[in-house]
Design a protein around this nucleic acid. Structure first.
Lengths: 258, 258
DNA sequence: CTCAATTTGTTCGTATGTATG
DNA sequence: ACATACATACGAACAAATTGA
């Protein structure tokens, strides 16, 4: 039998899904424009190095999503763009971050007091004795776009249980005048959704997410705020202005990037 | 439990791969520590709500990766962490970026002169009449970690063909004293690998990548440098210092470089 | 209008992969 | 380990719709 394509060997994800992903991206990025006739099955067959039926399966997927319209004898045409909600969620400075977070609609799904920090940090301060673990889901237009797993120093949480329980923690923290944040940083990576995250974000298990680790350290060198945030990959974009030293002026939500 | 069965509906990725992803993540995050005996097949079976054989298939995958060691009659033990090479490739300011790029080992895989910019930009300057398209792969330790698709204004390229052909473009550009960059920004999203990118990065078709669009605009408002960079998801991390050097004193928001 | 070329749609047979019990 | 069911992928052939010479 013919070997499966070499690309397929590298990831065991079904071929037709891989192909569909690529075609979907081409539509999204405008490489294939709406109304255009895309390559014929034979061309695609050759380009991707897969069987005709496999291409058809991929097109079938896109058709179900309303992205293409295949007409016998004529060709396959792009019939729409995937609605992508790219919100600029992340900020490059503390001020912007606070202002963004303040308006977030969130739902606390889990709270557990008096826990220890599970994964000790490397060089981002020392751990407090006890933390409160808070998991929340952030919504935009009723759709979940991120899951926040926050370890908040227990003594901080105890100071205003009510507020920390029902609203975003960050604004509450900055309002504590006696508290000095001497260090704050974000590290962004790409991860995969575990069962809980997948469930909360309504995505598939193992699908990619933008993972952001946000740590605040006080003047005692203690990591008082350790958050692991998983963003839905389609609801995430980060814009960095490379020349301006001042905060980016993009405080508005719902801003399109493409 | 059929909790996972419903998750499975959302992503047609084979179940045992999804399960393996989760287990891999547990090892990576330290939820399962090296040397530990992980849950028995029966427990996992119950937790994930899948058949015993499916769990075994997942464990088989992890065993091939050297992450676990299954011993008949004893149990399955964590035998190692996935080695991930997380290099901090991206920068938040222009100077840092240049210094990072300068040392990059890259291989030009494709050059095409006198092309037009394919996807016109939204609000990031006007397009030049003609561009040179350069595709290169960046290596670290012999492993490819990013693919750069660059559209460079044709007149710039013509000024030093030799150099642009064989080394990174960014340093060459900043050295042109008569050229004024008035705007530079990066936008980061999560995308999927198309056939060429997958081939060059040695990953599977449709696997997630960190996509970075980098645009430089000169004092004429022309986008002279438009790059779409695809980073291997495991070779990518972006660290943002939220307090450092950023004027937290919100008053100082002047200093326009235009 | 017919013919031929093009292009999508359908079906068959076969092999292998996935998942259950 | 086995039996079963269904999904995935291939190649090839054929059917049906469209287009234009």
């Amino acid at each position: 039998m013919k070997k499966l394509s070499s690309l397929y060997d590298r990831s065991r994800i079904p071929l037709y899904i891989q192909v569909a992903s690529v075609m979907r991206q081409r539509i999204e990025t405008g490489h294939w424009v709406e109304g255009d006739k895309i390559s014929t099955l034979e061309e695609l067959e050759a380009e991707f190095g897969v069987a005709r039926v496999t291409i058809r399966q991929a097109i079938e997927l896109l058709r179900d999503e309303g992205l293409v319209d295949a007409q016998q004898g004529r060709g396959t045409f792009v019939s729409g763009k995937p609605k992508h909600n790219r919100w600029l969620n992340l900020a490059n400075d503390f001020e912007t971050m606070i202002s963004l977070v303040k308006d977030n609609v969130l739902e606390r799904v889990h709270i557990e007091e008096n826990v220890v920090l599970p994964d000790l940090d490397e060089s981002e301060g020392t751990a407090a004795a006890e933390y409160t673990f808070l998991r929340s889901v952030q919504y935009n237009d009723g759709e979940p776009f991120s899951v926040v797993n926050l370890h908040l120093a227990q003594d901080l949480f105890s100071r205003d249980r009510q507020r920390f329980t029902h609203s975003a923690a960050l604004p509450s923290i900055v309002e504590m005048k006696d508290l000095k944040i001497v260090h704050a940083h974000q590290t962004l990576t790409i991860g995969v959704a575990d069962p809980e995250t997948a469930d909360l974000l309504k995505i598939g298990l193992g699908e990619p997410t933008a993972d952001c680790r946000l740590v605040l350290v006080d003047d005692g060198g203690v990591a008082i705020y350790v958050a692991n945030i998983h963003y839905h990959k389609d609801c995430f974009a980060l814009r960095v202005d490379l020349l301006k030293k001042s905060p980016v002026a993009n405080a508005s939500r719902g801003l399109e990037t493409a």
